[in-house]
Computed example of a mutant assay.
Amino acid sequence: MSSKFANKKSLIISAAILSFFLALMIYALKQDPNFTPSQLVGEQAPTISAPVAQGGSFNSQDIFHHNRWVVVNFWSSYCNVCRNEAPEIENFYQTVTLKSNENPYFLSINIQDDKETIKQWQNNYKQSFPVIQDEQGLISLKYGVTGTPETFFIAPDSTVKYRVAGQVSKDFILNFIAWLEKHPTASQEEATKALINIRSNS
């Protein structure tokens, strides 16, 4: 009788421990910043007007509302994840954005680095795209950026569809845009689950 009781007690303890660790896993998953949607989702993308590190200036009126997706990537030189992301970003720019005016446009925005730091970064990572300088952090403030890298997916009508926190790749960007196009009315929770699934397979 005592042996059965001990076995039952052991099973209860094991179940309790399993439940505890399952709860911890769910909690950890919920800490993914992508589970906290950007307040801009569903809104028109804030306008951008700023200098470009390579010279000249940029105005978002030149690309927003032009019937193409816009991928806005915020980064900084002190961001380690941005280093891993750098080659993929260049690959996307070269093989997608530059191939056709109908393909998604790539927009790079650096937060608070000086021009020389940006140029050195691009030289180190063999990047060729123009970089918008958010010298005072005002653009990132408008977009509600909380860390780098963060990437905003802006639909052809200039509506912000999603904000991805963390590293992105060429395949991820293309696959996620394809998913967003197929699910235009998806909730942010559904989009986040899709994001996690696509990221694990990209």
Rank of each mutant, 00 (worst) to 15 (best):
S2Q: 14
K4L: 15
A6N: 14
A6D: 14
K9P: 01
S10F: 13
S10T: 09
L11I: 15
I12T: 12
I17R: 10
S19T: 15
A23N: 00
I26P: 03
L29Q: 11
L29V: 11
K30Y: 10
P33W: 05
P33M: 06
N34P: 08
Q39K: 15
Q39L: 14
L40A: 08
G42T: 09
E43C: 08
E43L: 11
P46C: 12
S49G: 11
A50F: 07
A53G: 01
A53M: 01
G56M: 00
S57C: 12
I63S: 07
F64E: 02
H65R: 13
N67E: 14
W69G: 03
V70I: 11
F74P: 05
C79I: 04
C79W: 05
C79M: 01
C79Q: 04
N80I: 15
N84L: 13
A86C: 09
P87H: 06
E90W: 03
F92M: 06
Q94E: 09
Q94K: 07
V96S: 06
T97Y: 04
L98Q: 11
K99E: 13
E102H: 12
P104E: 08
P104Q: 04
P104F: 01
Y105Q: 04
S108H: 00
I111N: 03
Q112N: 10
K115C: 00
K115S: 08
T117S: 06
I118Y: 02
Q122S: 02
N123T: 09
N123I: 00
Q127K: 06
S128R: 06
F129P: 01
V131I: 10
I132Y: 05
Q133W: 06
E135T: 14
G137S: 12
K142E: 15
T148C: 03
T148P: 04
T148V: 08
F153P: 02
A155E: 03
S158R: 02
T159I: 09
T159F: 01
K161T: 02
V164M: 05
A165Y: 06
A165F: 08
G166V: 05
G166H: 06
Q167S: 10
V168R: 03
V168W: 02
K170E: 03
F172D: 04
I173V: 09
N175Y: 03
I177E: 00
A178K: 10
L180I: 06
H183S: 09
T185S: 13
A191V: 14
I196E: 13
I196A: 13
S200Y: 06
N201Y: 02
S202V: 08
S202Q: 09
